[in-house]
């Protein structure tokens, strides 16, 4: 396991700037999640680190050594692809053993058998080892692809939305599993996703990508509580942060503030400005109130067993509001 550093890395495909001047340090043993919507440059970032794409400028180093001229094999990275990564003409066992048999690793057969079984047990697929890769369900296939990375002990694991094609239950299980594996192996992971829950639950560090730019990098809590832009603020949190005119709920916003960001849980009830309840969503563990304040939509949380119903009026006041200027940058 090793530290991976990107220094001013850029990559364009024709006119499309997939990755723009990215500086990123993935500390040894960290679980870094890059979060961004489709097309933000997540896959390209992973492919650059793996050596499948050549950067236009900048340097990438793994464990202190520049790897820009090395082949993918020489970089000693393992990658889980977004799709298609199992070899369809091989069994699950052969798929898992494939990286270990490479001329690069040349693992002895008894060690291969041991490692394959070990990984299969971690991923709950030992009974599927002799199936053809094409005879698996989607969830099993994705677990085998993750397994094909886990049998190795590379400098870094690169994972490209490995859970995005799975159903909710399996996704939740594997999130826990990956987190456990990270802790057990003391592995360095770079995991990209568009799913904020994956970012919040697994990451030691989160990077937020916007059209190829790394706009913020920090701990999940830091990113959640101190977003540097409205873009970052809007990427994390469920329900989403309320972005309102700066003076809607606050009589004296900081000078230059245009927008106030207010997390749903940071709204005090019972005092302040009047708001109309337009919708009540009972989710069981929480209840969401959709409010209207002078034509602006506001979402807030309330007691699961609330008596409030549509048409009621409540008073709301902000708690720890975040202010942003006209460009969406944070000012207080």
């Amino acid at each position: 396991m090793a530290e991976v550093v990107l220094n001013g890395v850029s990559k364009a495909f024709g006119a499309t700037k997939a990755v723009v001047d990215m500086d990123l340090t993935i500390p040894d043993g960290a679980f870094v999640v890059l979060l961004g919507p489709t097309g933000a440059g997540k896959t390209t970032t992973l492919r650059l680190i793996a050596g499948l794409e050549k950067s236009d400028s900048g340097t990438i180093s793994i464990a202190g050594d520049a790897v820009d001229t090395l082949t993918p094999a020489q970089r000693d990275v393992a990658m889980v692809f977004q799709q298609y990564s199992l070899y369809p003409h091989m069994t699950v066992r052969e798929n898992l053993a494939f990286p270990l048999r490479s001329p690069y690793l040349k693992t002895p057969e008894d060690e291969i058998a041991r490692k394959v079984l070990n990984v299969a047990e971690v991923l709950h697929i030992p009974h599927k080892l002799d199936n053809k890769a094409t005879e698996l369900s989607g969830g099993e296939m994705q677990r085998v692809s993750i397994g094909r990375a886990l049998v190795r002990d590379p400098a870094i694991y690169l994972m490209d939305e490995p859970l995005s094609s799975l159903d909710a239950k399996l996704r939740a299980d594997l999130r826990v599993e990956l987190k456990r594996i990270h802790a057990e192996l003391a592995a360095t992971l770079l995991y990209v996703t568009h799913d904020q829950i994956e970012a919040m639950t697994m990451a030691t560090h989160v990077g937020v990508l916007d059209e190829g730019n790394l706009v913020q990098f920090g701990t999940p809590r830091d990113i959640y509580e101190n977003p540097l832009t409205t873009y970052v603020a809007a990427r994390l949190g469920q329900p989403r942060i309320n972005l309102l005119p700066a003076d809607l709920l606050e009589s004296a916003p900081p000078p230059g503030a245009l927008t106030m960001g207010l997390r749903p849980e940071n709204i005090r009830h019972g005092a302040g400005r009047e708001a109309n309840v337009v919708r009540v969503e009972h989710l069981g563990d929480q209840t969401r109130l959709h409010l209207k304040v002078a034509d602006h939509d506001v979402i807030t949380l309330t007691d699961p067993h609330t008596d409030l119903s549509v048409g009621a009026t409540i008073q709301i006041a902000p708690l720890n509001p975040l202010f942003f200027d006209a460009q969406g940058a944070r000012i207080g």
Binding site: A73, V77, S85, S102, P103
Partner: peptide
């Protein structure tokens, strides 16, 4: 899909081996 060969390249194989084995 190219991803098969790319996976093999990352798994420690050369371009020719990826062609031959995958």
């Amino acid at each position: 899909p190219r991803e098969y060969e790319e996976a093999a390249l990352i798994d420690g194989y050369t371009r020719f081996q990826a062609f031959y084995k995958v």
